[in-house]
């Protein structure tokens, strides 16, 4: 491994760790902020004995810092308590539904990259693509994804009867939700690619590449695009996380069985342990994704490694 890379990996992991710590503190704090975490963490119909047991489990008689450590210990062991609706361990429930959300977010992500990069590169040369991108980004950032989802369902599933309305099954079930979810990302990434390409194409090294008589294809895709990739990858990391977050509403609209839908159902029942567990696990996922994105950046741009 080139020198400097291992040092920067270590640095980034440390940073990720610190962030994770913050995530855990926030998740812990919310429950205890109300003053009576027990009533949150247990269903209203729980017995007095169950309450006493929970009090001991949480260590409520101890100082806050100790309570936090207990929480942390439980979290690291994967114990977020039991969901009252399902009467199962929160962790099991969340992990069972995580793949569906990841599938949805991942597909939307792939669609977003697949459209925004070529569109952005084309738009940087100007012309019709530039107009298309501008309109797309204006609309994409204003249209609420849940409304778009509903409209797509209306048009495609109800009126045209081309695709199923909702549910989880095969590719035909994945198409509409993934497209809906990808819209905002396409808008943001597309804009980034266009502006990045425009300034990259003005650079001196592009002039050199052309002076070498290289094919335009190579000049754009190898020389210019590479310099745009660092901000794109950084944003892509944030986007993927954002997708997982925005997936919540899309999952509701399309009845997609992911963690977003799970969280909304938990909301309806005030199933607090389930919510807390979902948020923590999702936060963990986010930190990992961003770490990965950071590492990709260091791989692409050797100058970053020294920073």
């Amino acid at each position: 491994m080139p020198a400097g890379l291992s040092a920067s990996i270590a640095q980034r992991c440390l940073h990720g760790f610190a962030v994770l710590l913050g995530v855990s503190i926030a998740t812990f704090a919310v429950a205890h902020a109300t003053g009576d975490p027990v009533s949150l963490l247990l269903s209203p119909s729980a017995s007095a004995a169950a309450r006493t047991q929970m009090r001991a489990h949480l260590g409520l008689d101890q100082p806050v810092a100790a309570q936090y450590l207990i929480f942390l210990r439980h979290a690291l062991a994967g114990d977020f308590g039991q969901s009252f609706i399902y009467r199962q361990a929160v962790t099991t429930l969340v992990l069972a539904r995580l793949p569906a959300t990841l599938l949805l977010a991942g597909t939307a992500f792939a669609i977003a990259l697949g459209i925004s990069i070529p569109l952005g590169v084309a738009a940087a040369r100007g012309g019709a693509a530039a107009w298309l991108l501008q309109i797309f980004s204006m609309l994409g950032l204003a249209i609420p994804s849940f409304w778009l989802g509903l409209m797509l369902v209306l048009a495609v599933s109800v009126w045209l009867r081309l695709l199923p309305v909702d549910g989880f099954g095969g590719i035909s079930h994945l198409v509409l939700p993934a497209i809906t979810l990808s819209l905002q990302s396409i808008a943001r990434l597309g804009r980034l690619v266009v502006s990045g390409m425009r300034s990259a194409l003005r650079a001196d090294y592009i002039r050199t590449a052309r002076a070498k008589g290289l094919l335009e294809r190579r000049v754009i895709w190898v020389h210019a695009l590479r310099n745009v990739m660092v901000p794109v990858v950084t944003m892509a990391g944030l986007e993927l996380g954002d997708l997982i977050s925005s997936a919540v509403v899309v999952e509701v609209v399309f009845a997609w069985p992911g963690i977003g839908r799970l969280a909304v159902m938990a909301l309806g029942q005030r199933d607090f342990p389930l919510l807390q567990g979902t948020v923590f696990i999702a936060g963990l996922g986010f930190v990992l994704i961003n770490l990965l994105a950071d590492l990709c950046c260091a791989r692409i741009d050797p100058r970053i490694r020294l920073a």
Binding site: V19, L20, G22, V23, A26, T27, V30, A31, A33, T34, L40, L238, G241, D242, I244, S245, S246, V248, V249, I259, G260, A263, V264, A266, L267, R270, F272, L275, Q276, T278, V279, A282, G283, F286, V287, N290
Partner: peptide, 16 residues
Amino acid sequence: LAFPFTLFAIFLLAVF
């Protein structure tokens, strides 16, 4: 930024 915002919002508002 590490929190998936919508989920966190649901979480907070469920409590408060």
